[in-house]
Design a protein around this nucleic acid. Sequence first.
DNA 1: TCGAATGTCTAGCAGTGCTAGACTCGCCTT
DNA 2: AAGGCGAGTCTAGCACTGCTAGACATTCGA
Lengths: 191, 191
Amino acid sequence: MSTQERKERERASRHRLIVSAARELAETEGWDAVTTRRLADRIEYSQPVLYSHFRKKDEIVGAVALEGFAELTEAVRRAVPTGPASRAAAAALANAYVAFAERNPTIYDAMFSLSAGLPFADPATPAPLREAFEALLDTLGDVAGPVEPGLFVEVFWAALHGLVTLTRAGRLPPEHNAQRLDVLVDRLVDR
Amino acid sequence: MSTQERKERERASRHRLIVSAARELAETEGWDAVTTRRLADRIEYSQPVLYSHFRKKDEIVGAVALEGFAELTEAVRRAVPTGPASRAAAAALANAYVAFAERNPTIYDAMFSLSAGLPFADPATPAPLREAFEALLDTLGDVAGPVEPGLFVEVFWAALHGLVTLTRAGRLPPEHNAQRLDVLVDRLVDR
DNA sequence: TCGAATGTCTAGCAGTGCTAGACTCGCCTT
DNA sequence: AAGGCGAGTCTAGCACTGCTAGACATTCGA
């Protein structure tokens, strides 16, 4: 039995290696550089090995995206103080969200633009995605006012996401980003 | 001189043919089906002809995107009654925007997701893009309240765009779309 | 020690965007 | 009206993509 366990450990470790290599390659040279050949090169295995871990290349991107959701959750949780949520907490969350996207543009792309391979399976959505949403819900739910908290969080999240993507696409001048965020929070939060 | 004019006319007509063929192909089979080979086939010319009109394939997508911006402008203008803008006008605009995106998902993708080849040249942005923004400004500027109208429109637009993209990506359950839009307009519009 | 099964690699397929160079045709000049 | 030149087009091909069948080791259990 021991040898089988060892093999599984090694396999899991190679799995992680693939994901982190893909991420690093994407972060340094962009997603276009993440081809199956170059990725196989990096991990010092041949292409078919990738396909023994993932069914399609998209699934590798999806795995990186899941990492991103976990990190986004952490960043958001760290930014807002625990305790009763307020307008200030919502503002801190919004800032943290946008900052994360600006700090990790490549991962953010994987999370939203290249999401074709994200395991969107039956038991709702994958855990990290759900947890990210819950992190938002925990602080934004309290400032939802009369509307259903879940719905409010969806709207708030969508607005943040729109701001991020339009800015990143060069459609919004980046210099007034902070002001835009201010307006958004000011208006959305129940007064 | 006449023959040269005729040639230019024919050339311009073929230019339009390429763009409309690309759009039709994309709308019926998705952007993945729009390859230079299949597109060349459709217009009954060879691939190099495409490249005598556009430098890269992205530019063809960009041309379709520009059409989309023009149509979006029209849809928005048609939806809001002329005259003093109000909360109702803003709601009508928001509905028209989202409806356009739902009615033309393929073109919307060209406008925002596949925007690599959009002529983003020096004199600010291309005309149709500017005009679309102005259409939003005309009705939303009046409900901006104390904040600078341009900035407000950017925020409003980003929020709409975020709602559209997250819904389309399957991240938001589509059934509560109308409610989300209601909340968004309710909160953003100055009261 | 041998047979089988697990694992990995080489080589290749069908497709992509894009282009160099051959060719043909229509136009202008003599 | 005949000829040559240039513009316009096409064929063929390059370098690359994601993905996979089949050959080859290598390791394991009997």
